[in-house]
Amino acid sequence: MFAYEFMTNAFAAAGIVAVVSGVVGYFLVMRGQTFAGHALSHIGFAGATGAGLIGLAPLWGLLGFTLAAGIVMGALSDRISNRDIAIGIVLSLALGFGLLFLHYYTSFATQATALLFGNVLAVDRGMIATLAVLGAITIAALAAIMRPLIFATLQPELAEAKGVPMRFISTAFLAIVALAVSECAQIVGVLLVFTLMVGPPAAAQRVTTGLWSGLILSAALALAEAWFGIAIAYYTDWPVSFCIAMLSAVGYFVCLSLPQRHLSRAHSST
C-alpha cells in the first residue's frame, strides 16, 4: 500500500492533521466548546465554496472564514460563544451560504463531497507542506498560551483575579481552533471534524486525568484512528472518512465503557 505515492501522501497529511487535531481538540473538550468547533467548520464550508467561486484554493477560504469567525466569537465570548442557539443559527446560515456558493460553482458535485466529507487520497506534496507549516503554527501558538489557557479554563474567576487576560485568551484559542478545523477539514471534511477533534480527546479524558498523559494519548489516538482508517479504506474500498469516523466512535465508546481509573499517586507522570 505504501508503493503508491497517493497513499504515502495520505498518510503524511493525515498524520500531521491528526496530531494537531488531537492536541487542539483536547483543550476544546476541556473547555466544553466542542459545539463552537463544530460551528467553525460549517462556517469554513461557506468560506471554502466562496473561495472556489472566486478562483482561490478552498483551503484559503476555509482558513479566512474560520479565523474571522473564531476571532469574532472569542471577542463576543460572554455574549455568544457559549450560546448554543446563536451558534446553531449562524452555522446553519453558513451552511446555507455554502450551498448558495456551490450553486454557482461549476464542478459542483465532486467539490461538495470533498469539502463536506474530505478527500485525503487527493492530497499532493504541496498540500502536505502547507499542512505542515499550518500545523507547526497552530501548535506553537497553542504552546504559547497553554498555561494561562488551562488556568482560565479551570478557574476563570481566579484567573481573572490573577491578571490573566481572559478575553485575549479565549479569542486566541478560538483562532487556534479555527486553524485546526481548517486543517482537519482537508482530511475528513467539514462535517466530520468531530471525528478527529472531539472523539480522541474525549476518549483520552475518560482514561487519564493527567494533563500531559491526556494530551499525548489524545494525539496518539487521533493518529492511530487516522492511519488505520486509511489502511482499512485501502483494503475495503470504503470511503476513508467513514473508516476514520467509525474508528473514532469505536475508540470513544470503548474508553467510555472502561472502568474509570484514576492515578492514586500524585507524583506519577504529569
Binding site: 476541556m30 497553554m146 498555561r147 488551562i150 488556568f151 478557574q155 490573577k162 486525568t209 494533563l211
Partner: peptide, 27 residues
C-alpha cells in the same frame, strides 16, 4: 466557582494550573 461538571483533571494538575497560571508558555 465554575467547575465544569465532567472535569477529569486531578487535584495536583488543577492546583498546578493556577500556580503560575498567568505566565505564558507551556505548563
Amino acid at each position: 466557582r465554575t467547575v465544569l461538571p465532567d472535569l477529569r483533571v486531578r487535584g495536583l494538575d488543577f492546583i498546578g494550573a493556577s500556580l503560575h497560571g498567568e505566565r505564558w508558555g507551556v505548563p
